[in-house]
Design a binder for these strands. Sequence first.
DNA 1: GTCTATAACTCGATAGAC
DNA 2: GTCTATCGAGTTATAGAC
Lengths: 203, 203
Amino acid sequence: MSVKTQPRSPTRARLVEVARRLFHERGYHPTGIAQILREAEVNSGSLYHFFPSKEDLLVAVLEKYRELLRPMVIDPAFERESDPLERVFAVLDGYRKRLLESNLKEGCPIGNLALEMSDEHPRVRRLVAENFTAWRAAVEECIDALADRLPEGTNAEAVAGFVLTVMEGGVMQARAYGTLEPYENAVSVLRDYFERLLADGEG
Amino acid sequence: MSVKTQPRSPTRARLVEVARRLFHERGYHPTGIAQILREAEVNSGSLYHFFPSKEDLLVAVLEKYRELLRPMVIDPAFERESDPLERVFAVLDGYRKRLLESNLKEGCPIGNLALEMSDEHPRVRRLVAENFTAWRAAVEECIDALADRLPEGTNAEAVAGFVLTVMEGGVMQARAYGTLEPYENAVSVLRDYFERLLADGEG
DNA sequence: GTCTATAACTCGATAGAC
DNA sequence: GTCTATCGAGTTATAGAC
C-alpha cells in the first residue's frame, strides 16, 4: 500500500511533471518528445532509460494524476466545506478556478485525454477510467452522506456519475466558447437539481 | 441563402467526407494527409488545390457538420416525436444509437475536437462553438415550447446549454469506460430533473 | 484540376561511448 | 544513469508537367 513502484529519480520526476504540463496545455499528440526533453533539460537517452515509449510516459502521467486526485483536488475542497452537498460544489468550484487560472484554455486533463486518445491505447483508457472512477467515488461519499436528505431510493452512484458528467460537459463548453459562463450555468442548473432533490427528500 | 460557397467538385466532396470520417475515428492529429489521400483516392496536388493546409480541410469538415446538424441529427429526432420534451430525448437517443453503432469508440465529433484542439486554431474553435450554438438553439426551441409546463422564470437558454453539457459529459464517460451505462445514466438523471421541473410547473 | 516526385522537416526511437 | 549522434519513417506541403 505504501511503496508505490520504485525508488524515484529526480530526472524521472521532472520528465513526468513536464510531460504532464505539456500534455495538458497542448495535448498528447501535438507535444513532441523533443519539446519535453528541452523543457525538462533531459537528454533523450535518459528519457528512454525510464520510459520505453511516449505512451509509457503518458501512462506515468495518468498514474500521477490518480495519485494527486485526493491531495490536490478532493481534500482541499473537503477541508473548505463540511456539509456534504457543499463539498461537491467546492470540488466543482475548484475546476472553475483552474479554468480561470488558465484563461479558459485548459480544462480537465483527464477529460481531454478521454477524447483525444482513440481506443488503440488500452492502458491509457484504463487509467482514464480509473481516474474517473476515483473522482466519482469521492463525490459518491458526499451523496451517501446526504442519503437521508434525498428522496428515498436515490442511487448515489448514479448521482455521482451525473456530477462528473456535468463537470466534464461544462468544462468542455467553457473551453469551446472561451468563457466561464457555460460552466457556471451547468453548475448552477446542477444545484437547482440538488435543491429539488432535497426539497423532495424533506417532504 | 441557397448558394453555399462554390460550385463543389466531387473530388473536394470526397476529401471532406473521408477527412470527416477519419478525424472522427482517429482524431485530427493522428490522421495523416497521406491516409486521407489514400482512402479518398486523391493525389496530394488535388488536395492542396482545394485546401491550402490540413487545418483548412478541418474547417471544411466543421462547416459540413454545421450544415448536416439539422438534417442528420435534429430533424430525424423531431420527426419521430412531437412532444417537445420527447424531442429533446429523441435527440439524445440519437447519440446513444451512434455510440452503440461505433462500438462505443466514437463519440460526438464536435466534442472530440473541442478538447483535442488547443486554442491555437481560432477558426476551428469558432466553428466548434458555432456547432454547439446551433445544437443548443435546436434544443432551446423545445424548451421554449415547454415554457408553460415549466416553473415560471425558467431560463430556456440555460436549460438547453445544460442538456448539451449532459450529452457531452455522458458521451465522454461512455467512451472512457467502453460501456453505454454512463451515458444512459446521465440521460436518465436528466429526465428525472425534467420530471421534477414539470411537476413543479404544474403546482 | 490532376499527376508524380520530392523538398524540408519533425517524429519517435536507438546505438554505443562514458 | 547520462551523453551525443543519428536512424528511418512519417509528416505537411510544394514544384512543375500535363
